[in-house]
Amino acid sequence: MLNINEILYILPHRYPFILVDKIISFKKFIFLNAIKNISLNEPCFQGHFPENPIYPGVLLLESMIQTTGILLYKSVKKQILKNKDMYYITGMNDVRFKHFVFPGDQILIKSILEKQRKKFFFFKSIVKVKKKIVCKAKIMCVRIIKK
Rank of each mutant, 00 (worst) to 15 (best):
L2F: 06
Y9V: 10
I10G: 01
I10W: 07
I10F: 06
P12W: 05
H13T: 12
H13G: 11
Y15V: 10
P16G: 12
P16W: 11
P16K: 10
P16Y: 12
F17C: 12
F17A: 13
I23L: 03
I23V: 14
I23W: 01
I24A: 02
K27L: 09
K27A: 08
K27Q: 10
K28W: 05
K28H: 07
F31I: 10
F31V: 00
L32A: 08
L32Y: 01
L32Q: 02
L32T: 04
L32I: 13
A34Q: 07
A34N: 04
A34S: 15
A34V: 05
K36V: 01
N37C: 03
S39C: 09
N41W: 04
P43H: 15
P50F: 04
E51A: 12
V58E: 06
V58W: 09
L61D: 01
E62F: 03
S63N: 09
Q66C: 04
Q66N: 09
T67S: 14
I70P: 00
L71V: 07
L72G: 04
Y73P: 06
S75A: 10
V76G: 02
K77F: 06
L81Y: 07
L81I: 13
K82P: 05
Y88L: 13
I89T: 14
M92N: 11
V95G: 05
R96N: 05
R96M: 08
V101T: 03
F102L: 15
G104P: 01
I107T: 04
L108F: 04
I109K: 04
L113Q: 01
L113P: 00
Q116A: 11
R117L: 12
R117N: 12
K118F: 10
K119P: 07
F121M: 14
F121P: 00
F122T: 02
K124V: 07
V129P: 02
K130I: 01
K131T: 12
K131G: 05
K132E: 09
V134I: 12
C135G: 00
K136S: 15
K136W: 07
A137I: 04
A137C: 14
A137G: 12
K138V: 05
I139G: 06
M140A: 15
C141M: 15
R143S: 03
I144F: 07
I144G: 06
I144E: 13
K146H: 09
